[in-house]
Computed example of a mutant assay.
Amino acid sequence: MSRPKRNEYAVYRGEELLAMGNVDECSETLGVSTSYIYWLISPTAKKRLASRKNLDQCIVGVRLDDEDE
């Protein structure tokens, strides 16, 4: 029986990589809750961040897709 697959994420501030890994690893590295990481990758967060003036200071989350799928 195989284990369920855990998605990988990357969290950036501008061009700077702040954290990479699953949701638990990213939240632990940044010292935030897992719900905050999930919010960062949501469409709502992306819409809100798109309207900001200083995008290079915004924290954004990106889901990393597996290339072998």
Rank of each mutant, 00 (worst) to 15 (best):
Y9L: 04
E16H: 14
L49G: 13
N22E: 04
R48M: 07
R63A: 02
M20C: 05
T34A: 06
T44N: 09
S51I: 00
N7P: 15
N54E: 12
A10C: 12
Y36P: 01
D68M: 08
E28W: 08
N7F: 14
S33M: 01
E69M: 03
E25K: 13
S33V: 03
K53V: 15
I59R: 05
K53L: 11
I41N: 02
E28Y: 08
R48E: 05
R63K: 09
W39C: 00
R63W: 00
S42V: 06
D68Y: 13
P4D: 12
S27P: 08
R13K: 13
E67D: 12
K47I: 08
A10F: 08
V23P: 04
T29P: 02
S35M: 07
E28T: 14
P4H: 11
R63V: 00
L18K: 07
G14S: 09
L55C: 09
L40V: 07
D24M: 05
L30V: 03
K46G: 01
L64Q: 03
R63L: 01
C58V: 11
E16T: 15
S2D: 15
R48F: 03
M1N: 12
M1G: 15
Q57N: 10
V11K: 03
E28C: 06
A50F: 10
R6W: 06
I37P: 04
T34Y: 00
M20H: 08
E16M: 13
Y12Q: 12
C58H: 04
Y12S: 10
D65H: 11
R3N: 14
V32F: 02
L49E: 13
L64M: 09
S33N: 09
E67H: 07
A19Y: 06
S2H: 15
M20T: 08
N54D: 14
L49P: 00
S27K: 03
S33C: 07
R13L: 03
K46I: 01
T29H: 06
L18Y: 03
C58I: 12
L40I: 09
D68P: 00
L40P: 08
Q57C: 07
D66R: 13
M20K: 10
L49I: 14
E16Y: 11
R48A: 02
E28S: 13
V11H: 06
L17R: 09
K5L: 14
D68A: 09
S27E: 03
E16G: 07
Y36S: 04
V32M: 05
E25W: 05
A10Q: 15
D66M: 01
R52C: 04
I37V: 11
V32K: 05
D56T: 12
V32Y: 03
N22T: 10
L17N: 10
E25M: 07
S27W: 01
T29L: 02
L64E: 02
P43D: 12
L64P: 00
E8F: 08
E15H: 14
M20G: 00
R52F: 01
S35I: 03
Q57V: 08
N22R: 05
D24G: 09
M20V: 11
L17V: 10
E69P: 02
S27V: 05
M1Q: 11
G21Y: 05
R63F: 00
I59W: 00
K47H: 04
L49A: 14
E28Q: 14
G21L: 02
I41K: 03
I41C: 08
W39V: 00
L30Y: 05
T44K: 14
N7C: 14
R3T: 15
L18H: 05
D65P: 01
L55V: 15
R3F: 15
